[in-house]
Design a protein around this nucleic acid. Structure first.
Lengths: 248, 248
DNA sequence: CGCAATCCTTGACGCAGATCAAAGATACGC
DNA sequence: GCGTATCTTTGATCTGCGTCAAGGATTGCG
């Protein structure tokens, strides 16, 4: 099963430059109009926090452009990223008042927000939006559980390869390019953010990136621009039989 | 926020000896009758598999008695447990045909199953059941993400303490006992199963159990019967500021 | 341009937990 | 009661990754 596919069949959501995976997948035009009336845009700078864990969150949103992260921390500062939000990803929990995690922009970030109350009302009136939400939540649950396998059982090298494969795949998907052969993308994460996602230290991330480069699995231009000569080889390094089609 | 609370306000579901967290929380009597008409019971022996990952799964179910696990594996056999199913827990995915994980009984297990198609139909007609499902899925997502923090950032000792705290808490909740002070429960998991849940080896689990015993955090009678003299001390060992109220 | 702030890389070393190995408990069938 | 199978404990050793430390690259700002 391939998760987190971006549906290409949806009409665009009003004037949004992307298709919201969340709400548009099966929207009819009149519903889009209703969504239009409750939406607004917010932009954030790199490093800026969208919401803090525990804070009231009175909107749900889709990422339009940029990258954001969901993180949790222990009291002593150890932190674990539990989700990565790329364009078209949804964030927010209808029916819940407070944010459970920190949401932070790692690049310039534009979000399309919907006021929560009216959004919930719309959900109540249009069952397939509610159903779409359930589907999305199940996707995220699958993604989280795949990530548990990665965190619990994969080696550092496999973890890095898995992350690169996922980002490469998502990037290709967004730009309607093939997910095979040579792939090129920008990795909008610092080594530290990668480490927090993978349950490693930034030094280990750096070393394994160097190792993958030395072994010809990837090439690097600068720190963040990644070239994957052969996606299948990368998948193989990820130690995963699935095609790595999970995320959030 | 405390997750996976068992609602004590629900009417019982037909003749089930437990209250199904999934479907009963807000059920009205006539809906219970409808549920009654599509339900049936299945029992499993320890070690028996309920469904294999990838197999068609034409029911959803609640655990009535016993314990089951959800596991994922890599090709080379490394396995990671991604969920633990205790009495009242729900398993199954409305709207999805196949099981994403292996579901295996670890004790004698009794499940109350609902045929999926009629269950989905009922969901479609009773919005609050759909909403309940979304809530449950969000709970599971929270649990999975808490577990990501554990897998990525906690030490072996903290992992063990976290697991014990969770099981103790759930056990107390099921038996309507307090979650504080002295607590006693049976741990229906082998050392290996614990290891698979925590991303450790069974030897490390055994050693850390011995260490917690030596340090007076727990007492053991036999291998599986656990006595926690002081729950707060255990929580402290778990390195967690929350009260550990997550699971699945 | 020079300086400071970030971010990244690399090396040396140590340790938590994995691996390998052996033996002790416990339960069950005959 | 004895033999066998399963589960658990404990010890010895190894190793992948963390920790500590130093220095390089890049960017932005005076």
């Amino acid at each position: 099963m391939s998760l987190h596919q971006i549906p290409n069949v949806a009409p665009q959501c009003g004037d949004c430059p992307i298709r919201h995976r969340a709400v548009c997948a099966r929207c009819e035009v009149d519903e889009l109009a209703q969504l239009d009336s409750i939406k607004y845009y917010r932009s954030f700078d790199p490093g800026q926090t969208v919401v803090w864990a525990g804070d009231r969150m009175d909107f749900v949103a889709s990422v339009v452009t940029g990258v954001a992260t969901l993180t949790q921390t222990l009291e002593d500062g150890r932190t674990q990223m539990v989700g990565l939000l790329l364009p078209s990803d949804f964030v927010g929990r209808p029916g819940r008042a407070n944010a459970p995690y920190n949401v932070t922009a790692t690049t310039d970030l534009l979000m399309c927000c919907f006021r929560k109350k009216p959004f919930e009302d719309l959900m109540g009136k249009t069952p397939h939006i509610a159903q779409r939400l359930l589907e999305m939540t199940l996707d995220e649950l699958d993604a989280a559980r795949e990530w548990m396998l990665l965190l619990g059982r994969k080696t550092a090298r496999e973890k890095i390869a898995s992350l690169l494969a996922i980002v490469a795949r998502r990037d290709a998907s967004l730009n309607l390019r093939a997910t095979s052969g040579r792939m090129v993308f920008d990795l909008a994460l610092t080594r530290e953010a990668m480490a927090d996602y993978l349950g490693l230290t930034l030094e280990t991330v750096s070393r394994q990136m160097s190792a993958l480069k030395r072994d010809g699995v990837i090439e690097l231009e600068g720190k963040r621009h990644v070239i994957v000569p052969d996606y299948d080889i990368l998948l193989d390094e990820a130690g995963d039989d699935s095609d790595g089609g999970y995320l959030t």
